[in-house]
Amino acid sequence: MYKITAKRLLAPSIYLMDVAAPRVAKSANPGQFVIVKMDEKGERIPLTICDYDKIAGTVTIVFQTVGASTKKMALLAEGDYFSDFVGPLGQPSEFIEENIEELKQKKIIFVAGGVGAAPVYPQIKWLHEHGIAADAIVGCKSKDYLLLEKEIKAVAGKLYVATDDGSYGYQGFVTDLLKDLIEKEGQKYDLVIAIGPMIMMKFITLLTKQYGIKTIVSMNPVMVDGTGMCGGCRLTVGGETRFACVDGPEFDGHLVDFDEAMRRSTQYQTEEGRAEIERQEKETGHVCNLGLGEHN
């Protein structure tokens, strides 16, 4: 049993939880994820690791309620337990293996959409702890939905916020903002790391491809075991089949077949889940004003 040691509502329908899982906390690295299960009848739900405290033995998750399971999860309170909490799963972010001095020469920008702000935080924090200030764009529907602003600000170089309704920061999609930064402000980036809804990551990669900027994305296909056993999470990357849970979840975004991935992720969609995803797509960039791809 894995105790929920803290719970916080970060934004409407977005929750943060700290969970006591010493083994996971000890081995966790940025870019990895966990799978949680609430009880005997629950499903296995993959969630990105948003922070970890190796001394306290806790792992932080941030989730958005989209369907039956995440809604049930939102009802859990501090002091309640997950029956299962397994990880860290997947490969850590590529940069943690890289030479720090070389990494310092690179200009890195993170692009997060919606609940994606949570998983970029440990990555920016890791870089910060290694003397690297990465920039970040965080996009959301409106000011109320902005996640972890203070925390990210404390570890990022520059933080840009984009809201759909203009209630805070830049008005528009993260893709538009990134394009403006590059074209209007003359920013030069060597590496973009994009985490958010698949549709957002797709459009970011279409944009960065134009500028030839290497772009890493974090894929979230449907998963069961998370250990390479079911093949449900398979994606096509560079023309080859890869399992997101063991080969990823982070991949070179310019090689990922997003249309296939988005199609596959609808396989088990429930009505409520589908409505939520459609809503997200509307908010985070379904309008392709880049003239790069078909509308979805």
Binding site: D84, V86, G87, P88, T227
Partner: peptide, 9 residues
């Protein structure tokens, strides 16, 4: 349970 050798430990 929930320990993946090679990942968790």
């Amino acid at each position: 349970t929930n320990v993946i050798v090679g990942r968790t430990v």
